[in-house]
Every structure is written in C-alpha cells, then in structure tokens.
C-alpha cells in the first residue's frame, strides 16, 4: 500500500468512528421500535397516547399513558419555572458582575451540582424534603409535584446556567462599551444590550434544561409519588414516564404486552426529548452570532 492510499485509508477509518454517534442513535431508535411497536397491535396509537387509564397489570390491562405524559409535563414545567430564573441570573452573575474569585467558586459549585448523581438528589428529596413538605402543609405524602419539581430544577440549573453563560460571554465587548459610553448603568446595559444579544443562546439553554428535566429518571422515580392519575393540585403525586418505565420494567415478563408498552413509552419519551434537542439546535444555529461583524 503506498503512502497516499494509506493516508486516505486512515482518514476513512476515522470517518467511521465519527459516525458512531449516529449509529448509536440509530441503534436506539431500532431497539425502541423493535420492542415497542408490538403494543400497537393490541392498543391503537390514540388509545395509547390519550388513554386515561394506566393499569398495566389488571385483567384486562389498560395501557393509556396520558396521565404519565401529563405527569412528565407538569414536573418539567414547574422545574423550568424554578430553574430558569435561578440559572439565568447565576449566569449573569458569573459572566457580568462577580469578582474573579467568587466567579471561580460559583462556576465550580455549578459544575459540582451537575456532577451530583441523580439518585443522590432523589434520595435527598425523599428523606429530607418530603417529610418537611408533609408536616408544613399537612399532606398525606411529601412525595409530590412540588418536591419533584424542586429537585428537578436543581438538576436543570447547571445546564441552563453554563450554556447561558457561554452565550452572555460571547456578546462582543464593543456592545457593552457602546452602552456604557452613552451613560447607561450596568443594569441597563445588561437588561437592554447584553441579555437581548444573548437571547438565542439563553433560549437554547432553556430548551436543553427542559430536555434534561423531562428525561430525568431517578428523581421522579423516587420523589414524584408514583400516582398514575391526572393531578388536581400541586401537592398531588404523579407518575412521569421515566418513573413508570424504571419502576415497572424490572417486574414485567419478557415480551409481555406490559413490556412492549414500556418500550413504547420510551419511544414517546425519546421523541419528546429529541424534539427539544432539535429545537435547541435549530435556535442556536439559526441565530448564531459570532461577533459584531455578523450583525
């Protein structure tokens, strides 16, 4: 083999490795479809997605995951409501205001928070937050929407904060200087110049934070309470999709209807998070702004 052929050969070997991410993604889709599709021979797609009853072990079983979808969305939305202000404000603090030493500390804090295993946070919600909620609000259980949302928010904060921080950091220095030169205060500069310029990045951050929250498993498994019903209050228990899959998969017989139904739930979850990620990707590319010259 001559030198040039060898060079091209090596290049294609690396190309194959670069395809691994796509291949794995395809393998995931394949396995979800292979194991999830059979449920639709028994239950229509509409009944599956919008059915109000999730009683997979009854005779006859009911496979309606609507309450699970609602559960997923409710905890995700509440978690986002908590995490977005905290995460974005922290990002502003880090990128614009904090003195150098505090900045480094806060960045490490957020990094460590991101590194905290979800089972640990779930455990904390279960043994610490739940009893507090139960006593303060006099509830039958502290494992509910509020608890799960708070813990999920903690998991989404690092994602939201670090990506927002990158976006804020990328705002060209000239913009800030122009604003200060006009006599604007630091707050006015942040609110009217820096933040709007970073908005697409912050939007991406929020989408990815939501994707993180909706796919998170251990927290909702341990602290959401597990009731597969449409909640009526924020202190009710819910059973988000990941919780349902994780809790039930261990106990279902291989290739039973229930097993297929759980894989189909995984499909729904996968495509939901995929949508969030694609939106985030679209937003970050569409409004990509690399410097003042591109404006």
């Amino acid at each position: 083999m001559n030198r040039k052929t060898k060079e091209i050969f090596i290049k294609y070997i690396f190309f194959l490795f670069a395809l691994v991410a796509i291949i794995v993604l395809a393998m995931i889709v394949f396995s979800l479809f292979r194991e999830g599709m059979p449920i639709f021979k028994q239950v229509s797609v509409k009944d599956f997605l919008f059915g109000m009853e999730w009683y997979p072990t009854f005779d006859p079983p009911y496979f309606g995951i609507f309450p699970l979808i609602v559960g997923s969305f409710i905890v995700t939305i509440f978690a986002t409501l908590i995490a977005v202000p905290l995460g974005v404000l922290a990002a502003i603090y880090i990128s614009e205001i904090a003195p150098r030493s505090i900045k480094e500390v806060l960045k490490s804090v957020i990094e460590l928070l991101a590194g905290l295993p979800s089972v640990v946070l779930g455990f904390f919600g279960m043994v610490v937050i739940a009893p507090v909620l139960q006593n303060v609000f006099d509830l039958p259980t502290g494992l509910n929407i509020v608890n799960a949302s708070m813990i999920l928010a903690l998991m989404a904060i690092p994602t939201i904060s670090s990506i927002s921080e990158d976006a804020l950091y990328a705002v060209p220095q000239e913009f800030k200087e122009a604003s200060y030169a006009l006599g604007a205060t630091k707050f006015e500069t942040i609110a009217k110049v820096i933040f709007p310029a970073a908005l697409s990045g912050v939007t991406t951050a929020v989408m990815l934070g939501m994707a993180r929250a909706i796919g998170e498993t251990m927290v909702v498994l341990m602290v959401a309470g597990g009731a597969a019903a449409i909640p009526e209050s924020i202190f009710d228990s819910v059973r988000p999709m990941p919780a349902s899959i994780a809790a039930e998969m261990g106990e279902t017989p291989y290739r039973s209807l229930h097993y297929h139904a759980l894989f189909a739930t995984g499909m729904v979850l996968f495509f939901l998070t995929l949508t969030f990620n694609l939106i985030a990707d679209y937003v970050s590319n569409k409004f990509k702004q690399t410097g003042s010259a591109t404006l």
């Binding site: 995931i28 796919g215 996968f270």
Partner: peptide, 10 residues
C-alpha cells in the same frame, strides 16, 4: 440529550 432511562431500554 437521550434520557438515561432510554439508554437503559436500549
């Protein structure tokens, strides 16, 4: 962005 539980299913 694939949820960890989906990795489990895979």
């Amino acid at each position: 962005g694939v949820p960890s539980v989906v990795f489990g299913l895979f």
